[in-house]
């Protein structure tokens, strides 16, 4: 069974990557997850300078889901390069660096700095995090702004640029076309959905950041629909993200049009989830009559299932 795949020029041994923000920089899961066995690792969002993030509490469990309002706390690009990147490089991981900024220039500055570093395989622009008031969020709604930030980053690096879209928009296909036209090499979909919970005991919002991003199995159907729509709107590859827990879930995303997937929240409950998915994937593909990952990509698209 051939489980290899590719996201544009980035070749992956298997289609399962760790999702940004849920896997730190890798060593946190030392002893539990072998990063070089994964398709790849998307690290926590990196800004030009350290960001402090939101006040706690930062997580709240919901039915089949999780609300978080970390607020993009990160050590800044220099500390990331000096302290965090060496581990992933030494492990031989396929590394996707998620980048964030308040302005187009900030995104481009991080991309330019990372362009000089060995051991990075792609950049993923988080233009979609619901946890910051400024910056990211407007890029996530406005096709013009999203295209402009994509073009700015493309001009600052030779690395492949993936753009991570927000589901919190009414025109996902329009957003996808805007970033594709601006030169994006791939689209990651989706980031978390904006949500909120109230702590009844304390009579206040459950999260320190008041609203947060919903992840986990609760959002999987929303993510499948996003991948379905985006993969038919553009010609660049799509990385599917949202609520994946099993190899069958991965196959669902592949058939909806994803070339690879990322697993986030599932790792909190089961650190071995990604390894278990990778192990089970060949059997699941065979069970549903596929002889490779490549054969499953977009298999459910119109025109392919009428046979």
């Amino acid at each position: 069974m051939d489980v290899r795949t590719a996201v544009g020029a980035v070749e992956l041994a298997n289609p399962v990557l760790a999702a940004s923000g849920t896997f730190g920089f890798g060593p946190e899961y030392d002893g539990l997850v072998e990063v070089r066995r994964l398709g790849g690792v998307a690290v926590k969002g990196i800004a030009p300078e350290p960001w402090r993030g939101n006040a706690p509490p930062r997580v709240w469990e919901t039915p089949s889901g999780l609300l978080n309002s970390i607020g993009l706390q990160n050590p800044g690009v220099e500390a990331f390069v000096a302290e965090d990147l060496p581990y992933l490089r030494q492990q031989g991981a396929t590394v996707v660096v998620n980048i964030i900024g308040r302005t187009r220039e900030e995104y481009a500055a991080v991309a330019r700095r990372l362009d000089r570093e060995a051991g990075i395989h792609a950049l993923e622009l988080n233009i979609s995090c619901p946890n910051i008031k400024e910056g990211g969020i407007q890029f996530g709604h406005d096709p013009g702004a999203a295209g402009a930030v994509t073009a700015a980053v493309k001009g600052a690096t030779r690395l492949p640029v993936w753009v991570k879209l927000s589901p919190n928009t009414h025109d996902l296909a329009g957003m996808a076309r805007a970033v594709a036209d601006a030169g994006a090499d791939a689209i990651s979909a989706i980031n978390t959905l904006v949500g909120m919970a109230i702590n009844l005991d304390e009579r206040r919002p459950a999260l320190g950041g008041v609203t947060g991003g919903l992840s986990g199995p609760a959002i999987r159907p929303v993510a499948v629909r996003a991948v379905w729509e985006v993969s038919q709107a553009v010609d660049i590859p799509v990385v599917g993200i949202g609520g994946i827990q099993t190899a069958a879930d991965v196959l669902e995303f592949l058939m909806a049009g994803a070339s690879a997937v990322m697993v986030g929240t599932a790792t909190f409950s089961q650190p071995g989830a990604m390894a278990a998915i990778i192990e089970a994937l060949p059997g699941v593909l065979a069970h549903y009559g596929f002889d490779s990952v490549a054969a499953a990509i977009g298999a459910a698209h119109p025109g392919r299932w009428t046979t």
Binding site: T22, G24, Y29, G53, N68, I70
Partner: peptide
């Protein structure tokens, strides 16, 4: 309140 429990998610600060 914790997410990962191992230092990766920055929830428990």
């Amino acid at each position: 309140r914790m997410g990962c429990g191992v230092g990766a998610c920055l929830a428990c600060v």
